[in-house]
């Protein structure tokens, strides 16, 4: 059985086991929706007090917020196994069990769990996207839709890479997961604003080191049909999400290194 159909099996199993407690799945989804929705209140409060900033209004920022939120919700849905890797696999020794099976550990971790509740964030972000569309009077051309899907794909790869890196860190310390929270949840937060809000060193970091801007700022400019006020060439904007996939590939290299470290120290 090939990897993709095996993932399909895992998916079915995960859905069946969550459906053993349908009320709980429902509640968690709603809680996710509420908890992510409340964050936008603080952004709204800032715009309410200070007005538009550097040519960006609340409607556009909602656009950033929504696309990042959708990307993150999918990544969170697909890479839950990496997210809980330190606590549920390394600390408990359950990772040994994955290594005892004739499949790649990464594949088994993706299949470990698909959390229905992650759709809470997805719904919330979709609602924000609808509101942003209305506020800006944005027209969804087929080209814009394709570009948005491509952006989301790059974003899923990007956040997936962060979850993989978080898991890699667990090989060294299971107590360190907070650090990557800075990059995952902190990434969602940082990606909600156009990078022109940030200082130069931070923009450089978000473009070249942890390429968050490549899966949010640049492609969203392309979708909105705007040029980059910071001077990135127009042709680059729609191509930027590819950086998310490159980042994911690098994360898996680090993952392989982590696994080999694990098998040589056993801890």
């Amino acid at each position: 059985m090939n990897a993709l159909s095996l993932l399909g099996r895992y998916f079915g199993a995960s859905m069946r086991s969550q459906m053993q407690y349908p009320a709980s799945a429902m509640m968690l989804t709603l809680a996710q929706l509420a908890s992510t929705a409340i964050e936008i209140v603080s952004i709204w409060a800032l715009f309410d007090r200070f007005g538009a900033v550097k040519g960006w209004a609340f409607g556009e920022v909602m656009f950033f917020y929504a696309l990042i939120g959708i990307s993150f919700s999918f990544a969170d849905f697909l890479t839950r196994g990496f997210d809980v890797f330190g606590s549920d696999f390394v600390r408990t020794g359950a990772f040994d069990r994955l290594l005892l099976r004739p499949r790649s550990a990464a594949l088994q971790l993706v299949g470990h769990d698909f959390r229905i509740s992650r759709f809470g964030r997805f719904f919330q972000a979709s609602i924000i996207l609808a509101i942003a569309t209305g506020t800006l009077g944005f027209v969804w051309t087929p080209q814009a839709i394709l570009l948005a899907l491509w952006t989301i794909a790059g974003g899923v790869a990007f956040f997936g890479a962060l979850f993989v890196l978080q898991a890699v860190m667990a090989f060294w310390t299971v107590e360190s997961l907070e650090a990557v929270n800075a990059l995952t949840y902190g990434g969602v937060y940082a990606g909600q604003f156009p990078i022109s809000f940030y200082a130069r060193w931070f923009r450089t970091f978000l473009i070249f080191i942890v390429p968050l801007a490549c899966v949010s700022y640049f492609p969203v400019l392309a979708i909105l049909g705007r040029s980059d006020p910071l001077g990135a060439p127009d042709w680059f904007l729609p191509l930027a999400p590819a950086a998310g996939f490159l980042f994911l590939a690098l994360a898996f290299l680090a993952w392989r290194f982590g696994v080999s470290k694990y098998t040589s120290t056993g801890s």
Partner: peptide, 11 residues
């Protein structure tokens, strides 16, 4: 169901 999953994992 667990057995069936193992069947697929072990091909």
């Amino acid at each position: 169901d667990g057995f069936d999953l193992l069947r697929d994992i072990y091909r």
